[in-house]
Computed example of a mutant assay.
Amino acid sequence: MLRISLLIVLTMFPAAIIAQGFGGPVRVIDGDTLDVGATRVRLHGIDAPELGQRCTNADGVAWDCGTWAADQVRRRIGGRMARCDTVDTDRYGRTVATCAVAGQDVGRMLVTEGLALAYRKYSMAYDLDEKRAVIAGIGLHAHRFDRPADHRRTVREDRATQTAAPDPDCAIKGNISRSGKRIHHLPGQADYARTVIRPGQGERWFCSEAEARAAGWRRARR
């Protein structure tokens, strides 16, 4: 009778039951995102610096603490076997989960070692772990930095500003490619909307194609 009841439950709710627990080898994407087997995982309850995010040390020198944090996580759990429990799915389609390696809660380990912060918006599970790391000045807490959520918001605001022409009459985007080619994009062209202007890297806005050509920019092909 018990076997029949279990079969009925599995038949009615197979996806929910299968989704609860999963495991596999770890591939580290960044400080709070992993591939566990074939599943992309956003660790629940923690928030790590973004790749490329800058921190400032005691001497006032800025450095890429986001990449550093990811490298530290990779050293600790990269290639090891993890067991995870699903909590949710985020807007990017990633599985939000808590994971353990060798029986140790990965989220707690990273917050305790100052490689990530407690993400109190979603969980208070690691609140005290972060406070202890702050007091001890461990990892990130030995430096000055923006909380990752604040950093992401600033980046979004900057991008919104940089993709909108400061003068509606000067809306041609003068972009510089990675190979150093100077290409200008007209409103309506294929890559116009996603092209970001970075004045600090020599990119600029133009009021006419003639102005862009005179400055050394060629028109985008599409």
Results as ranks from 00 to 15, higher is better:
residue 63 W to N: 01
residue 157 E to G: 04
residue 54 R to Y: 06
residue 72 Q to D: 11
residue 135 I to V: 15
residue 160 A to N: 13
residue 55 C to N: 03
residue 107 G to R: 01
residue 138 I to P: 07
residue 107 G to S: 03
residue 190 A to H: 00
residue 142 A to E: 06
residue 70 A to T: 13
residue 62 A to K: 13
residue 90 D to L: 09
residue 66 G to F: 02
residue 69 A to P: 09
residue 68 W to T: 09
residue 49 P to L: 09
residue 182 R to N: 04
residue 150 D to L: 14
residue 168 P to F: 05
residue 155 V to Y: 01
residue 169 D to V: 11
residue 149 A to N: 08
residue 61 V to G: 02
residue 174 G to K: 01
residue 81 M to K: 14
residue 117 L to Q: 15
residue 176 I to Q: 07
residue 115 L to F: 14
residue 144 R to T: 13
residue 140 L to Q: 06
residue 155 V to S: 03
residue 134 V to A: 01
residue 162 Q to K: 08
residue 143 H to N: 11
residue 146 D to E: 09
residue 106 V to G: 02
residue 146 D to C: 01
residue 131 K to I: 12
residue 104 Q to V: 15
residue 106 V to Q: 04
residue 56 T to C: 10
residue 155 V to L: 08
residue 147 R to H: 15
residue 72 Q to S: 08
residue 121 K to G: 00
residue 56 T to K: 14
residue 93 G to H: 03
residue 108 R to T: 04
residue 123 S to N: 04
residue 51 L to W: 00
residue 189 Q to Y: 11
residue 61 V to S: 09
residue 82 A to K: 03
residue 172 I to F: 14
residue 124 M to Q: 10
residue 173 K to T: 04
residue 147 R to Q: 13
residue 135 I to E: 15
residue 95 T to F: 00
residue 162 Q to H: 12
residue 129 D to S: 15
residue 80 R to Q: 14
residue 115 L to M: 15
residue 137 G to I: 05
residue 89 T to H: 07
residue 54 R to C: 05
residue 150 D to Y: 10
residue 96 V to L: 00
residue 147 R to I: 15
residue 186 L to T: 09
residue 126 Y to F: 11
residue 144 R to K: 11
residue 124 M to H: 08
residue 53 Q to P: 05
residue 194 R to L: 11
residue 115 L to E: 14
residue 144 R to I: 02
residue 58 A to F: 05
residue 61 V to A: 11
residue 194 R to M: 10
residue 107 G to A: 03
residue 76 R to G: 13
residue 151 H to Q: 05
residue 67 T to S: 15
residue 57 N to L: 06
residue 174 G to Q: 01
residue 78 G to H: 08
residue 147 R to S: 11
residue 49 P to M: 09
residue 145 F to V: 02
residue 102 A to P: 03
residue 183 I to H: 04
residue 49 P to C: 12
residue 123 S to L: 04
residue 133 A to L: 05
residue 60 G to V: 02
residue 85 D to L: 15
residue 75 R to E: 15
residue 75 R to D: 15
residue 160 A to Y: 08
residue 56 T to A: 13
residue 181 K to R: 15
residue 68 W to V: 08
residue 62 A to M: 11
residue 78 G to Y: 09
residue 97 A to Y: 05
residue 93 G to W: 01
residue 87 V to I: 02
residue 91 R to C: 00
residue 156 R to K: 15
residue 131 K to W: 14
residue 107 G to V: 04
residue 173 K to N: 06
residue 110 L to E: 12
residue 168 P to T: 07
residue 110 L to D: 12
residue 167 D to E: 01
residue 145 F to H: 01
residue 100 A to Y: 02
residue 157 E to Y: 06
residue 151 H to G: 00
residue 152 R to W: 11
residue 176 I to S: 08
residue 145 F to K: 00
residue 184 H to N: 01
residue 172 I to N: 06
residue 73 V to C: 07
residue 121 K to Q: 09
residue 75 R to V: 09
residue 148 P to C: 07
residue 82 A to T: 03
residue 82 A to W: 02
residue 127 D to G: 06
residue 87 V to K: 05
residue 192 Y to P: 02
residue 77 I to H: 10
residue 79 G to H: 12
residue 66 G to T: 04
residue 161 T to I: 11
residue 161 T to W: 12
residue 177 S to L: 13
residue 169 D to P: 01
residue 195 T to M: 04
residue 155 V to M: 09
residue 193 A to M: 09
residue 58 A to D: 11
residue 113 E to M: 10
residue 124 M to T: 09
residue 149 A to Y: 08
residue 130 E to F: 04
residue 177 S to N: 14
residue 188 G to M: 06
residue 123 S to K: 03
residue 69 A to L: 08
